[in-house]
Amino acid sequence: MPSYSQINEKLIEVTLNNEEVFAKRGAMISYQGTVSFARSFLGGSGIQDLAMRTVTNEGYALMVAKGTGKVYYGYDGLFVNVIQVNNETMYVESETLLAFDSRLRTGTMFLGNQGGVQGILRGAVSGQGLFTTTLQGTGEIAILSDGNAIGLKVTPEQPVFVDPDAYIGHKGNLTSNIVTDLNWKTFVGQTSGESYQVKFMGQGTVYIQASER
C-alpha cells in the first residue's frame, strides 16, 4: 500500500512497493528507484466514469506512476495537504487533486444530487462547475491549496459557513446549501463582498484555503 509523507509544506513523498499511484499530470518532481510513468486514461475507474468526466468537464489530467521506489510530487509552489479518509467520501474540486491511489474509488457527482436546486445554484455562482469529484474508501488523498489548508469540524450543533471562493473540499456526512446575506446596501452597489456563503450541516470536515480564487 503506497505511503504518503510530507517532506515540507509544498512537497510530498510517495513510497511505492510494486504499486501504483495516480497524480496530477506534470506534478512529479523527482523519483528514486524503478518507476515508470504513463498517462492514465481511466484514472482507476471504468469507461462509464471516464465518459461522465468528459461530458461534465470535471476531467482531470492524470498520470499513473508504477514501480518500486519513492516519487516526489509538488505543483506550482502550492501547499500540499495529505488528508486521511476512513471509509468515507471526500468531495474535492478536480483541479486541486494532487495524488491518490487505487484504494480509493473515484466518481463524479452532480451537485444537484446533493442539494437540489440549491446545489445547482451553488455550482453556478461559485464558478466551480456543477460537478465535483468524489473519492470513496479508506486511504490518503493529497490535495493542493493556495496558502495552508485548514479543516473545520462540522457537528450537528455547529454548522460551518464558508466563502465559496476559499472552499476546497469536504468529507463526511454533510449537506450543504447556499445562504445569502443581502441588505439594502447590496442593492445600491455597496456590497460587503460576502453576499453569499455555503452552509455545511451534519457531521464531517470542511477544508478551506487561505486565499480566495
Partner: peptide
C-alpha cells in the same frame, strides 16, 4: 471587504 473565508455561529456582514 471580501476577506472572510469561513465562519461558525451567527454573523452578519455589511459594507
Amino acid at each position: 471587504a471580501g476577506a472572510m473565508v469561513a465562519y461558525t455561529g451567527t454573523m452578519k456582514f455589511e459594507k
